[in-house]
Design a protein around this nucleic acid. Sequence first.
DNA 1: GATGAAAAAGACTCCCA
DNA 2: TGGGAGTCTTTTTCATC
Lengths: 152, 152
Amino acid sequence: MEEIDRRIVTLLAKDGRMSFTDLAKETGLSVSAVHQRVRRLEKRGVLRGYTAVIDHDAIGLPMTAFVSIKPIDPAAPDDAPDRLAHLAEIEACHSVAGDESYILKVRVASPHGLEDLLQRIRAAANVSTRTTVVLSTPYEHRPPRFDVDGDR
Amino acid sequence: MEEIDRRIVTLLAKDGRMSFTDLAKETGLSVSAVHQRVRRLEKRGVLRGYTAVIDHDAIGLPMTAFVSIKPIDPAAPDDAPDRLAHLAEIEACHSVAGDESYILKVRVASPHGLEDLLQRIRAAANVSTRTTVVLSTPYEHRPPRFDVDGDR
DNA sequence: GATGAAAAAGACTCCCA
DNA sequence: TGGGAGTCTTTTTCATC
């Protein structure tokens, strides 16, 4: 992928609703050339979609936490992500190296809501949990900086 | 905030580029009424912006990690987020309760890139680091489910 | 791949209910 | 607040280089 595609991706990461007209101005290409490139990036899966950035305080889910989980029975098949997928409070699920097996990012309304969610997580996936409560988020969703190289 | 606004927010979380026409169809409102509501949600800060969801594998940053940091000198003023803001590999910075003071989410090209970044983090903010490498991400960026209530 | 032009769809404004 | 009409902008397709 070269320069202009990277530029387009970065611009759309900063403003997912930027118009093709504006993308064209920023990249120096014509509108239709930009259009073509964006569609190609979408098709290739480089651009996986678009989403609104939401203020969780404003929608009544002001509490964020990271929940690390570990299976109670290490011999059982590990299908925790599937077993937890129905819990809408879980925004993300990452399989990780280290002492625990997954890190979940969760959004809840209150400490009570967190307590309740943790119980449901433990019950649904047969895991123990370790929770780190987020106090504030100085920044999040920063656009990626990516270079030509394959390293650094 | 009531029903229809919540619907709009959820729809835009799922597809940040959804047209006003489609939002109107989904909500049963007229285009101008939806338009008005979206602008109001943006103005109130409920909708903080829009962003493209990027495949980090595809752009040469296939390695994700969570880096927890702790100040070397607990007495020093805590301005780690500012000191780290120039590091573009850091996608998010959360202040957390618990043993460490911040959790950073980082994206790098390789183990070598991670090693290099960790050194830069330690040097820039005078902190020790503990790193958890992400092996895979079953899901991420799931839209919030939020109810009328203020609890649950 | 990129371009410009033309047609279709959508965004945005304003006024009235 | 919501709806509708009108206008202007953007998107999308297409033929051409």
